[in-house]
Every structure is written in structure tokens, then in C-alpha cells.
């Protein structure tokens, strides 16, 4: 007797959510992130045909080829994925967009587009696979490398890092988190919550580069990440379509209702942390960084702000496929314009 086929809520098997075989190094943190992305889309029951995968250039940006093989993907130019994603969503606001970038692709060449993507609160899940170095060009420092972090060659980074989470919060992203590629549970919860959020999700995922930045003296190595991970809360995500109630002692957990009715239960690990408060969030990031650690979890969330596509107030149908009679004004319109010019 055949084993019953495992399927998600829209009747698709896990296999559908897989992508091509990875060409990244064995043990690369990015591969673990791809696996969590596969899990998250499967568990959320999202149709891959409605998903677009976007990326810039670098090791991280290759990874969209390794998940959701049935989705359209666009491997754009270095640091400019946000604009391509913006355009695609303008064309069809029903698409679900996931963008994969790296710390160089975002923090260096792409910092301009990153800044404006965050400002616009475009509905996209933007993930930085953050290893503090340029893997594809053999290990140069990137702008997220910590002060004093050391390259294999012994070169020490003497410039302060860009904290992409603090920057994203400051600029207007409405869902900002940090995680570690080795933390399956936290990363999966954050990704699922990210897919339920309507607005810009910025997830910085520490993802060690096993080839160029996993040694003693690096602050982005597996060992360092494991030892210095400082979660701000314990995240439980319950999607709207699952009838699960979470019991908790009053005062011990913060409950956040998301745009689609899904719920986030954030079990407090410290009394005064509140991820809906910008100032507290930014303060916590700075304090943790000062200790040489990194704060993980859902750092900041603003569940209700209008996203960019809502602000544009476009018609309900995708602009891309509007028929001729919706996009070409009639003869009388042209005649009226001409008359005004006579």
C-alpha cells in the first residue's frame, strides 16, 4: 500500500517547492536558508506560480535558483534588485515577491536602492544572506563586517559595520528581523510571519561563508554566531488558516495580529522589549552590538501601515494584463486634448 502523499493546504507536495541543485560550497549558510524558504512557502501553502524570486549579484543572489523551481526568477544586476522587484510588483500587485541579497549587494553597491525600498514599504520579503564578505570574488570584506574582524589573510577590518536592521527600521521598513542560518526554528517562524506581512520585510540572516569567513577572528563564523546570538524574544507564528490557540501567562507574551489575521506570539525574554516601538528596537540593536553580540528575532514590526502599492491606488486587476479598452482612452479623449491645444 502506497504511503499517503504529503500535501499542504493547497494540495501541493513538498517537491514542488524545491529548486535546482545548489552550486554553492558544501556547508554554506545560504543553502540552509534556501531550505527554510522552501519549508516556509510549503507550510504557508503559497502557490509557486504566484511567486517571483529576485536577486542581485553574488553567492546569495545565485540561491533563488535553488528553491521554488516553478516560480519565475530574475537574477538582476549587482545591487539593483529592489528596483526590478518594485517594477514587477507595480505590473502585477498580486504577485508574492521574495528578494535575496547579500551584505555586499545590499550594503555597498546596492545601499541606495535598499534605502529607497525600505522607505517605500513595498510588499516584498527582502533577505540579506549576511556573511560579512564577498564570497564570489574570494573573500574581500563587505560593509557589514564588524570592527576588528579578521580575514584569513590576517587583514583586520577597521571601518564600522552598517547595521542593516537599524537602518531598515530608521528608513521605514515595517517588519525587521535578524536570524542565523543555523537556527532552524527561529528562521522558519520569521519567514512564515514574513509571508503573512503586507509591507517591506527586511530579514538579515547571519549566514557564515565556510570558505572565506569561518575562521578564528571572524565575527561571522558559525562558532561566533552560535556563541553571540542574543534573541530579543521567542517567536511563535500561527497562520490565520490554522486553528491553534496559544496559552500564555498574562504579561509573559506579546501578541501581534497581522494584516491577514495571522498571529505572532512573542514570548518575552526581557521585560521591557517591545518590537512595535522603534526607539526600543534601535536601542536594543545598538546595545547588543556594543557587547559584540547580535540581537535576533523579530526586532521591529508595524503591522498596519499602508504599503506602497496601496498608496498608489491602482485598479484591482494586475496592470500588466489590463485589456486595450482599459488602457487606451477613447477618441473623444484625444479630441478633447487636441481642442485644448488649438
Amino acid at each position: 500500500m502506497a504511503t499517503p502523499v504529503k500535501m499542504n493546504r493547497i494540495g501541493l507536495e513538498p517537491q514542488i517547492y524545491k529548486g535546482g541543485k545548489t552550486t554553492l560550497c558544501a556547508g554554506c549558510g545560504h543553502n540552509a536558508i534556501s531550505e527554510r524558504i522552501i519549508d516556509a512557502f510549503y507550510e504557508m501553502g503559497i502557490d509557486p506560480k504566484q511567486v517571483i524570486k529576485l536577486s542581485g549579484i553574488g553567492c546569495s543572489s545565485k540561491s533563488p535558483a535553488y528553491f521554488l523551481g516553478g516560480s519565475h526568477g530574475f537574477n538582476a544586476v549587482h545591487g539593483r534588485m529592489p528596483s526590478v522587484g518594485t517594477g514587477a510588483l507595480l505590473a502585477n500587485h498580486k504577485l508574492i515577491a521574495i528578494g535575496i541579497s547579500g551584505d555586499g549587494d545590499t550594503g555597498a553597491i546596492g545601499i541606495g536602492q535598499f534605502v529607497h525600498l525600505m522607505r517605500r514599504n513595498l510588499p516584498i520579503v527582502y533577505i540579506i544572506e549576511d556573511n560579512g564578505c564577498y564570497g564570489l570574488t574570494k573573500g574581500q570584506f563587505s560593509p557589514t563586517a564588524d570592527l576588528g574582524s579578521k580575514l584569513k589573510t590576517g587583514v583586520v577590518n577597521d571601518l564600522p559595520p552598517i547595521d542593516t536592521c537599524a537602518l531598515a527600521i530608521e528608513l521605514g521598513a515595517t517588519f525587521v528581523g535578524r536570524s542565523f542560518s543555523g537556527d532552524k526554528k527561529q528562521l522558519l517562524s520569521l519567514l512564515k510571519a514574513a509571508l503573512a506581512h503586507r509591507g517591506t520585510v527586511m530579514l538579515d540572516v547571519i549566514s557564515p561563508c565556510v570558505t572565506f569567513n569561518d575562521h578564528e577572528g571572524s565575527t561571522k563564523s558559525y562558532a561566533y554566531a552560535k556563541e553571540h546570538d542574543d534573541p530579543v524574544e521567542d517567536v511563535t507564528f500561527v497562520p490565520y488558516f490554522e486553528d491553534i490557540s496559544v496559552d500564555y501567562e498574562p504579561g509573559s507574551t506579546q501578541e501581534v495580529t497581522m494584516h491577514d489575521g495571522s498571529k505572532l506570539y512573542l514570548k518575552k525574554l526581557e521585560e521591557d522589549y517591545d518590537p512595535t516601538d522603534k526607539l526600543i528596537a534601535i536601542r536594543r540593536l545598538h546595545e547588543t552590538a556594543r557587547r559584540g553580540e547580535f540581537a535576533t528575532g523579530l526586532i521591529y514590526i508595524e503591522p498596519d501601515r499602508d504599503d506602497f502599492l496601496t498608496l498608489l491606488n491602482v485598479v484591482d486587476e494586475p496592470l500588466a494584463t489590463l485589456p486595450l479598452d482599459r488602457v487606451r482612452p477613447g477618441r473623444e479623449a484625444l479630441e478633447e486634448i487636441m481642442e485644448g491645444l488649438r
Partner: peptide, 8 residues
């Protein structure tokens, strides 16, 4: 380019 790619 993104918009054209998505059909607009």
C-alpha cells in the same frame, strides 16, 4: 525592466 518582465 521589472515591470516589463512582469508583463506591463
Amino acid at each position: 525592466i521589472g515591470a516589463s518582465w512582469a508583463g506591463a
